[in-house]
Structure formats: C-alpha cells, structure tokens
C-alpha cells in the first residue's frame, strides 16, 4: 500500500541535493528570468517562422531545449533511429486489480486526517490515436502538496510538508479508458534552473498503452496559469496547440457539490494498437492470452 512504499522509498533515499547541471556550474553570472524568457522567446519565434514556411506542427517536447539547463547534457544529439516496432514492443505489460487497490485513486484518504488545500477531482479518458479507449491499464500520478512541497527528501523548498498528504496515486482504467483521482490542488514551486524560477502547478502522470511504444510520462497543468510563459519545461513543447493538450479544463459537471472541484483531462497515446492482422502474424511467436 502507498504508506509502506513511501516509507521504504524515503529510507533508501540519501540526503544529498541533486547534482546541478554542469553547464550551470560553469556559468559565472546569475541567470535571470529575463535571460531565460529571451531564450524561450527566440526559440518560439523561430518555430513560428518555420510554421509560416510550411513546416508541420510539432507534437512532442524538444529533447534539445537548452532553456531547461539540465537537458543540455542529457539529450541525444543524433537523430532518433526510425524503427518498426517488433514482437515484444507490440505488446504492453499488463496490470490489474491485483496490482492496484481501488483506494489508491484517492490521495486524500491515505492518512488519519484530511490534507490541507483545495480538494479536486481529476478525471478523463486514456485513448489511442484512433480514439479507442485504452482499457484496464495502469495510470500513476505524483504531485506536490498544496504548498508546493514534495515529500521527496531532495525537495528543499522551505514550504510546509503536510502530514496528511503523500501525493502518490494509482488506478486502472475502466472499459471506456476512464480514470479518476481525488486529490488536492498542488501548489507552484521554485526550482533552481535560474534565479526566481517557478514551476506552474502540475500533476505528474504516467500511462501505459496497449503497446509498449505508447508509454507516456508527462505533466498535467491547470488552466490559466500565469507561469506558463516563464516555464522552460512547459515551453519545451514549442507548439501552442500541443502545449494546450497538457492543460486540464475546469468541468462543472465533474465538480462534486459541497465536496470538490472537477478538472477534466483526456490523454491521447501515440499511434494506434496493432491491427488484427499483425496480431495474428505474431500469434505464432507464442502469445497465448
């Protein structure tokens, strides 16, 4: 259960701050938000120009996005190698109710008391590129508390921890691909990318599809956040339409009277499930469901 795991994870975690990116160590001058915003704007302008010249829209973050300083030494410099998925890649690990307890989707009941903050419901569907539901699959989330503090020991932000909030949830999608979490609206938090760098409030999401190639880890944001233009992680997706796909919508239908505000967010995984024919072709390879 979430409790024990958290305790175990925390014990094995050492009390050391994360290594700063080397590039940041080498640079002498303090980088301000204005410096970063200028870089973000320049990259956005070049992308807008490319779009005008007929280039197709980008749908994913840039792996090479230097305003996020930690990415500088951590992105491949060679093009990703195009490959046709084969055998194991056309299947996905399976999860079920043995793996996840129904109560793990409610992050507000993991302790003896109620967590502080604004109670919310985040719900939607996991779909493939053809709009078909991804049923019976694992969704994992993690987030900061209402004050913008993670329970992770490496989080040094001097905001209060909440003894009644861990910030970890899981669920298995329904037949229609639906998921739903009850949680607390996370706070924005500072990080040390540059001077006065703040992350917009977000919930980390991890999803599996019906093929391993659809594996997705991302972050969900809240509508209207004033930090969007300033944040190198959000801005690493240079296309506005693509960025919008990470922003949940307030949904009054989902809001629960006298209880919690509702946010709706659907997730579209890349591509679509293997076709029946391909499935048959790999049947010989030993797939016995």
């Amino acid at each position: 259960m979430p409790h024990e795991q958290t305790a175990q994870a925390l014990e094995s975690e050492e009390l050391v701050p994360p290594a700063e990116p080397h590039a940041a160590q080498e640079s002498k001058k303090v980088e301000t938000q204005a410096d970063l915003s200028a870089e973000i704007k320049a990259m956005g302008d070049r992308y807008a120009e490319a779009l005008k010249n007929g280039r197709g829209p980008e749908t994913m973050p840039r792996l090479d996005y230097s305003p996020y300083r930690s990415s500088i030494l951590r992105h491949p410099t060679k093009s990703l190698h195009h490959a046709d998925p084969e055998t194991i890649e056309l299947y996905s690990p399976a999860f079920g109710h043995q793996d996840v307890h129904a109560l793990e989707s409610d992050l507000t009941i993991q302790h003896n008391g109620e967590p502080q903050g604004e109670r919310i419901i985040v719900a939607g569907r996991v779909l493939d590129g053809d709009g078909r539901p991804v049923a019976g699959q694992l969704v994992e989330i993690w987030q900061a508390n209402a004050s913008g503090r993670y329970i992770h020991k490496r989080d040094q932000h001097p905001a209060p921890l909440d003894p009644n909030f861990t910030g970890v949830g899981r669920c298995i999608t329904g037949d229609d691909g639906s998921y739903s979490f009850t949680t607390i609206k996370p706070g924005a938090y500072p990080w040390k990318n540059h001077l006065n760098a703040w992350r917009p409030a977000h919930i980390h999401f991890s999803m599996f599809g019906s093929e391993f190639t659809q594996r997705l880890v991302t972050q969900m944001y809240f509508p209207g956040d004033q930090l969007f233009p300033l944040d190198p992680i959000y801005q690493s997706i240079v296309d506005q339409d693509a960025r919008d796909r990470l922003v949940a919508q307030y949904d009054h239908e989902l809001t629960s009277p006298e209880w919690a505000l509702g946010y709706k967010w659907d997730i579209i995984l890349t591509g679509s499930k293997r076709t029946w024919t391909e499935n048959e072709a790999y049947g010989d390879a030993g797939d016995e469901e």
Partner: peptide
C-alpha cells in the same frame, strides 16, 4: 494514420523517487 494528435510527454523530473519505485 492516427486521427487524434498525441498528448506530449514531459520530463519525469527529479521527484519521482517516492512515487514510481515499488517493492521488488
């Protein structure tokens, strides 16, 4: 091929350590 545009990925960040790992 696909009709719907995919949801973009984002970095796993620094704080996955209390969420993604599990026993064994």
């Amino acid at each position: 091929m696909s009709k719907l545009a995919p949801t973009p990925g984002q970095t796993v960040g620094p704080f996955y350590g209390y969420a993604l790992p599990f026993n064994k």
